[in-house]
Simulated assay, not measured.
Amino acid sequence: MSLRRRQFLQLALGTGLSAAGLDISRAAGRAASRGDLRIGLISDLNSSYGSTAYIPQVSQGLQQLLALKPALLVCAGDMVAGQKRDLTSNQLDAMWESFARTVLTPVRRAGLPFLPAIGNHDGSPGFEADRAALRRFWTPRRQALGLTFEDAGDFPFHYSVLQNDVFWLVWDASSSRIPPAQIQWARRQLGSAAARRAQIRMVVGHLPLFGVSQGRDRPGERLEQRAAILALLAEGNVQAYISGHQHAWYPAKLGPLDLIQLGALGSGPRRLLQGKISPQQTFTTLDIDWQRSWLRETTYAAATGQAVNWERLPAQLNGQAGQLQRNVQRRWIRSQRSLKGQP
């Protein structure tokens, strides 16, 4: 049996939290053991259309996440509450300024780089006023985000970053279809010298590949070109596709690919398609140990700061696009070093 297959079997059989009949782990409030790199993940921060205010859980969860001292904060979209035709330019700019005060400024003051992806409420195709406001806000701030860009030609819609030995590809998944030119761009980026230098590769976009929450498992709420995108991610040796939009956290595994569907930190958390976990605002961390080649995913309830019990998640979800299997919490990473057969 090959080493990689033996490691996979050991991980599949031997990891995970103990089953407990609670919605939160018994290690309430404690951060997961960290490796060499901790990454913070948030998504779906906005409130109702046009709102310039955020619910208290956004700031509460953000402060809890900052206290865990990640090296980078990734947002998978829906930072403001656009996608409404009658919003004026002044209203759109006011929403973005509120986002700056509530989220971006505290993150940057803490010294964290901030990596944003565009959601449907930030700048969906066809909403040209939204997209113009988005450019007005982000373009002058690009150099102040603390990111090491590899390709920033169409920032903030799609771009790539090499940060902390992780290659990040961010694309415009603010609608259900990735433009063909952007698919080709992604293929070139994942095959680039920068991607090859990285230990692992991550792709971030707002819409997911599968529906996981009630009311969102339907066409238009997930990416259409699933087979082509999965082939692209496999070809590019991508560790994980990180997405939002579903307003419910579910960590899945599809072949070698991690599918990290983030919950909402803002308004409107949803129930999963199956299971009994109540809707709640959440944020997530990824801890990576390079030497031992593992990654650990932990999600926290913003209301309490306590880790969500992994074993309370359904072992699988059955949706319109097929069945998803729950991932293991700590898993082997597809490092470029291991793929090359190096020790």
Rank of each mutant, 00 (worst) to 15 (best):
I288R: 03
R337C: 04
I24H: 12
A110P: 08
G275F: 01
L17R: 14
K84E: 13
P113V: 09
Q274W: 00
Q274R: 12
D78E: 04
I333C: 11
L115E: 12
P56N: 02
G275H: 00
R187N: 08
Q57E: 14
D93N: 00
L265H: 09
A133S: 15
Q57K: 09
L145D: 10
T299R: 08
R270T: 10
Y159E: 08
Q214E: 13
S51A: 15
F149E: 11
A264V: 07
G191K: 02
R271F: 06
Y54W: 07
D44N: 05
T88V: 00
R292H: 15
L68R: 15
A234S: 14
D287G: 05
Y250E: 02
D130Q: 03
G14Q: 09
V170W: 05
P180C: 08
R334Y: 07
P269M: 11
L324E: 07
S98R: 12
R142L: 10
H247D: 07
L3C: 08
D289T: 04
P251Y: 02
G29S: 11
A321S: 14
R270V: 06
L65M: 14
L324H: 03
D78A: 07
D86A: 14
D122W: 03
A133R: 00
P180M: 11
A53Y: 08
I200Y: 07
